[in-house]
Simulated scan of single mutants.
Amino acid sequence: MEIKDIAGISEPLKKLIEVISQGIGTLSNPYLIKKNAEARAHEIKVISEAIKGSQNNLQQIVYEHGQVSLLSLEDRTIGLDERVQQRVEFKEQKRQMNIESVTQMAAQHLDEENEVSKVDVDKDWTSRFFNYVEDISNEEMQGLWARILAGEVKEPKSFSLRTLQVLRNLSKEEAQTFSKVAQYAIKAGNDAFLLQGNNSEILDKYDIGFNEMALLKELDLLHSGDLVNHSLIRYEQDCSVAYLFGEKVVVVYKKANSPQKDIPIILFTTVGKQLLKLIKSKPNFSYLQHFAEEVNDNGISTKYGEVLEVCGSEIKHTNPLIEIPSL
C-alpha cells in the first residue's frame, strides 16, 4: 500500500502508515493523532477499572458507544457459545488496543524526524513485529516496542528478528536491569562493551552486581566469555581512537610504536548492541576516569569532550578536548 498526498503528514509518518497497513491489514489514520490517542487512553483506563471491579462478582462487561456497563450474571443466563464469543472479542479488542498504543507512540517518535530511509521495511519483519506486540500491555514495555518500530521505519534492518524474539520474552524487571547496565556501555566502532579492567571491582562501584551480569548473559545480551580484551595495537605512526560514553566522547591518543595495550572488557552481543539504540546512556564521569586509568600508559593519553553529532563512524564533538583528571 502506497500512501500519497496526505495533507499534513510527514514522510516518516507516511512510511509508518504503510508499515502498519502491511502488518495488521487495516488502517485507521485518526489514532495516529495525539489528541485522539489520549481519548482512547482514557477509554482504556475506564474499561480496565470496570473489569478490575467486576472480577469478584463475575459480572458481564458491555462496552458500547464509549460507555461501560455491567450486567450481573444473575440477571441473564449466557450460553457457552456466547461466553466463548465474548472472551474472544475481549481478547482481540485488548490486542488491538495494544497495537494502537504502540503505533501511536512510534508516530510521536517519528514526528520529530525529517526524513527516513527509502528502503522498505521487510514484510516478514513487520508481520513478526505485530504478532508480538499485540500481547504487550505494559506501558513501559510498549514504549520500547514503539521505539523499535520507529527505528526500523527510519532505518530498516536496525533490529533483527532475533532481537524481536529476545525482547518478546523480556520481562519489565529484566528490561530495567538491562537499562541500568546499558548506562555504562562504551561504544567503539562496531563494538559495545563494559569496562571490566584489571580491577574486576570497577562495575561493583556502580552498583552492578554479579547476579545482574549473570542475568544479562543468560538473556543473550552480554557475551558469557570472561577472557575478552579490547586491544590498542601497535602502529608505526601516531593514531587516535574515539569512544562514546553516552553524550561524551573519549579520544585515546597512541604514539607511534608504543606497545600494545590490552583492556579487559565484557562485550555486548549483537542483540544487546541493537537494544542499546533504545537507551540514552549517561554514565557517571568517574567511569570515564576509570577508563582513562586503565588506558593511560607510556605513549598513550586520553582526553574528552561533548558529543555534538554522530554520523555513522564519524563523531563530531566540542573542541578543544579536555584532559581527564585523575580519580
Rank of each mutant, 00 (worst) to 15 (best):
G8P: 07
I9V: 15
S10A: 04
I20E: 15
S21I: 03
I24Q: 10
G25L: 10
A41I: 01
V46A: 08
K52N: 13
Y63S: 09
H65W: 10
L71Y: 03
S72L: 07
E74R: 08
E74I: 14
G79P: 03
R87I: 07
V88M: 12
Q96A: 14
I99R: 07
Q104F: 09
A107L: 07
K118H: 12
K123M: 07
D124S: 13
F130P: 05
Y132V: 15
Y132R: 04
R147N: 04
R147Q: 15
R147E: 12
E152R: 10
P156D: 12
S158P: 06
Q165T: 11
K172H: 12
F178L: 14
Q183H: 08
A188P: 01
N190W: 06
L195S: 04
L195H: 03
Q196H: 11
N211Y: 09
E212C: 04
K217G: 11
E218G: 00
L219Q: 11
V228F: 02
R234A: 07
E236I: 02
D238V: 03
Y243V: 04
L244E: 14
E247I: 05
N257I: 00
I266E: 01
I266D: 00
T270V: 11
F285L: 09
S286N: 12
L288M: 12
L288C: 09
N296Y: 02
G299I: 04
K303H: 09
L308I: 15
V310P: 01
K316W: 08
L321C: 05
